[in-house]
Design a protein around this nucleic acid. Structure first.
Lengths: 173, 173
DNA sequence: CCCAACCTTGCCGTTTACGTGAAAGTATGG
DNA sequence: CCATACTTTCACGTAAACGGCAAGGTTGGG
């Protein structure tokens, strides 16, 4: 009775746009906008044309949000990254359209390559960020070295200031 | 040394806005905009009010560009991150204004803390990206497992044809 | 001294990624 | 059956991050 959908949703509960948006931490407007931009489309529409989202839609939305918030990708870049994911959608259709193991494996390999490209794009970003961290770290160490210098020089002149000697400069790891 | 500038530029060559922008891979417009947004200001101005940039300005611009392009931070976020860096500017002024080692060390520790916050912000971002990579990796591995399954089934049932996919036939790869 | 090439501020235009109604249809507890 | 909340599409509004032009000033080589 509840199976008026085209995509195999497995009969699970479908969420309306606000429920779905709240679930993944977006606004309904954003979700509609992503659809408008071709980043996704809901699993189904209700009788009255309400957008209905399934779990895989939520995953996709979470992925988009992650790329946007965490990675800072633009929707255009995300779109490119998701083209690979869309190959996955096509794969789903094609996969179930064939029973030929050879064809299925070809599709799966395509999917694997898609994941590899995605991971590689993310790793490139990680590496650049890591380089910035290293840079910051180096500057931090230089400052620490300067502190040690001054403290050493200060220790020499300690007789001028009868202040309490500093505890060891042991920076704990 | 006779220094006609306010900030200690060390007498090195100062670049005009387009030279500076080209050097770090930005447009002059962006550089002006960053100044307008309070992210930075040139080391000096020429007689005719031309903006003049020194090496530390270039470093700062590179840092901004890095945060913008690589990390995908908004200028507002960058501004917050750079407030710490601005403490560094103040530190520079204050540092040279005092000869008191205790005060100098206090300023240096502030600087170190600033770098730590910067690094931490970046590491947080890295961790989130790493989580996404892990996710992608997991999905890739699942696809590889499916390939192995199909290949195994295909080898077993060489004389038959696969009617329906039977889960649980996880043969060791 | 002159002129091309750069710079200045000011201001308006544009793209991205939505926010915010408006007008009309849909779902649902009472 | 009705009120209320949510949904639809369409449309305009907006903040961020610049691009581009105008009108005028500055630089620097010839």
């Amino acid at each position: 009775m509840t199976d008026t959908k085209e995509r195999p949703t497995g009969g699970v509960r479908l969420l309306k746009i606000q429920e779905a948006a709240a679930e993944v931490g977006l606004t309904a407007r954003s979700v509609r906008y992503y659809e408008e931009m071709g980043l996704m489309r809901p699993a189904a529409r209700s009788e009255g044309d309400y957008r209905l989202y399934d779990e895989s839609d939520l995953e996709r939305l979470r992925f988009i949000k992650g790329l946007r918030d965490d990675a800072g990708f633009s929707l255009a870049e995300i779109s490119r990254l998701l083209e690979d994911e869309e190959a996955r959608e096509r794969y789903h259709a094609a996969y179930h359209a064939t029973a030929d193991p050879v064809e299925r494996i070809r599709l799966l390999r395509e999917r694997v390559a898609s994941f590899e490209r995605q991971a590689q794009t993310l790793r490139t970003k990680i590496n650049r960020l890591a380089a910035m961290v290293d840079d910051t770290e180096a500057r931090r160490l230089r400052s620490l070295a300067r502190i040690a210098e001054i403290e050493a020089a200060s220790a020499d002149l300690e007789h001028a200031y009868p202040a309490q000697p500093e505890p060891g400069v042991t920076t704990n790891p």
